[in-house]
């Protein structure tokens, strides 16, 4: 079995009488240590997939295994535990807590887990050792996203889930953030999943999964991932 197994996942949303199928017949695998890009237009069902993978939502049918555990069978308490221990989340809008310094924003995640890394060290790894005492409002967008990545990495997750990590950033900053993600994956062997609408990012991935109209339209392994600095869009 692969590190991440998604089997025949279906997700319906009900609002009153109306039933909307957001995902259907979604199946794919991701191996440990891979950098995977999930790409699709807006409305294709990316966010729903992300919610389910990240343990923020449950599914209607199908199964999902992460590292041999069937997370689709988890109850809400187990899902909380899963988010706490196994998932590192990077948001499009960083979602730093405005009232905490960069260091504290990392600490808040780190203190949730026993085998977390030291917050200051992780911030050093993302190149922010000199800004650790600053509040989010005093940081640029790129710097804030670095803090968010550090926050996700600090708890040594099994899976780094990134939702449009460059969506709110300019071209160059976006590129450095992606580089950071790619390097992190390469250097630490962490499984990284990047969700984006930007097809150009497919080139940086080990594995590409294309989503269209709520299902996987194609998926392939990229045997020769391009370093981020060589990608243009």
């Amino acid at each position: 079995m692969s590190y991440i197994e998604v089997q025949n996942v279906k997700k319906d949303y009900k609002s009153g009488e109306l039933k909307v199928t957001a995902l259907h017949d979604v199946s794919f695998q991701i191996e440990k240590g891979e950098i995977c890009v999930i790409v699709g237009e807006s409305g294709a069902g990316k966010t729903t997939l992300l919610n389910i993978l990240g343990g923020m939502d449950t599914l209607t049918e199908g199964r999902i295994y992460v590292d041999g555990q069937e997370i689709s069978a988890y109850n809400s308490r187990q899902l909380t535990e899963y988010r706490r221990k196994d998932i590192g989340f990077v948001f499009q809008f960083y979602n730093l807590i405005p009232n905490l310094t960069a260091l504290e924003n990392v600490e808040i995640a780190a203190q949730l887990n026993r085998n977390s890394q030291d917050a200051a060290t992780v911030l050093g790894q993302v190149g922010l050792e000199h800004r650790i005492q600053n509040f989010p409002a005093q940081l640029s967008g790129g710097e804030q996203q670095r803090v968010a990545i550090a926050r996700a990495l600090a708890k040594n997750p099994k899976l780094l889930l990134c939702d449009e990590p460059t969506g709110a950033l300019d071209y160059n900053t976006g590129k450095t953030i992606l580089k950071l993600l790619q390097d992190t994956g390469r250097n630490t062997g962490m499984t990284v999943v990047i969700i984006t609408h930007n097809k150009a990012l497919c080139d940086m991935a080990d594995r590409v999964i294309k989503i269209k109209s709520g299902t996987v339209s194609s998926s392939y392994i990229n045997p020769t991932p391009t370093p981020v600095e060589n990608i243009e869009w």
């Binding site: 990240g54 923020m56 909380t80 535990e81 988010r83 979602n95 807590i97 808040i108 995640a109 949730l112």
Partner: peptide, 14 residues
């Protein structure tokens, strides 16, 4: 709201 949702995603329990 956003902040609370974020800490929940980070794994804060109820």
């Amino acid at each position: 709201q956003r902040e609370i949702a974020t800490v929940k995603v980070l794994g804060f329990n109820r």
